[in-house]
């Protein structure tokens, strides 16, 4: 059984076909990297999985997306509940203009949890799991904006972890960070794999090779190749995949 499964999914922005018949399966507790040149639809595909595309007007979706074998686009699905299960980390760190503590507690509070000691415990555990605890434990009541970019991004990961999702979507989580912060995030992804299913969009081929188990190559809205990461990078089946990973275009 697959954790995430999409069957012949197409997505239109108005008349523009942005994703063509994408069928992908991802197993639980794996890291899947989505790679491809800009505008290939990899971010769009990622945002399909927590219905973030719903925010955009004139989006039409065909096909089915299953998470834990349930159609997330079926009628009667509560989007809030889906997003609690599928956490997301964005390209640029986007902490709220609140304290570090409140940033992590936000997801719990909006889900109606008000037990103080429980919130505190979860915040601490999330910060520990995102490898930020040691750096912020003395300044939980300071503004999140006082943190560095890399710390902010790990705070955003902690924020996503706090509501205990089973899937984490990452949209180029390290693209705005320096190499040291990037290394920390990658290390974190590797550790989080034990508990979570991770889907990561990245422009950085080495990053995809380092952190992922499976890699999907997108090109102009189509899924060109999907295989074990090792296979994709050492023995690509498709010419376009080879051209891309060897840097001939993109």
């Amino acid at each position: 059984m697959y954790k995430i499964e999409s069957k012949e999914v197409s997505l239109y922005y108005g008349d523009h076909l942005a994703l063509k018949n994408i069928s992908l399966q991802m197993k639980a507790n794996t890291v899947t990297a989505l790679i491809g040149p800009s505008g290939c639809g990899k971010s769009t595909y990622l945002r399909l999985l927590n219905r973030m595309n719903d925010l955009i007007e004139n989006v039409k979706i065909e096909g089915t997306v299953l998470i834990d074998n349930k159609d997330i686009y079926a009628r009667g699905i509560k989007i809030d509940d889906l997003r609690k299960k599928v956490g997301m980390v964005f390209q640029k760190p986007n902490p709220f203009p609140k304290t570090i503590f409140e940033n992590v507690a936000y997801g719990l509070r909006v889900n109606g949890i008000s037990n103080k000691s429980y919130i505190e415990e979860r915040v601490i555990r999330s910060l520990q799991n995102s490898a930020l605890w040691e750096e912020v434990k003395d300044k939980l009541n300071k503004s999140a904006f006082e943190l560095s970019g890399g710390q902010q991004q790990r705070l955003c990961i902690a924020r996503a972890l706090a509501i205990e999702p089973s899937i984490i979507l990452m949209d180029e989580p390290a693209s705005a960070l320096d190499p040291i912060s990037t290394a920390k995030i990658e290390e974190l992804i590797y550790e989080l794999k034990d508990k979570y299913t991770i889907v990561i969009v990245t422009h950085n081929m080495q990053q995809a090779a380092r952190v992922s188990d499976r890699t999907a190559f997108f090109y102009i809205g189509e899924l060109i190749e999907y295989n074990d990461t090792k296979e994709i990078f050492t023995n690509p089946q498709n010419q376009r995949t080879q051209n891309y990973i060897t840097g001939r275009f993109g």
Binding site: N50, M52, L55, D80, D81, R83, K84, G87, M88, F90, K92, N94, P95, F96, Y106, G107, V110, N111, C156, R159, A160, I163
Partner: peptide, 15 residues
């Protein structure tokens, strides 16, 4: 208000 703020909130299951 930046779109990223709104998305961050919605992605955490806030309505």
């Amino acid at each position: 208000t930046p779109r990223s703020m709104k998305e961050a909130s919605l992605a955490l299951g806030a309505n």
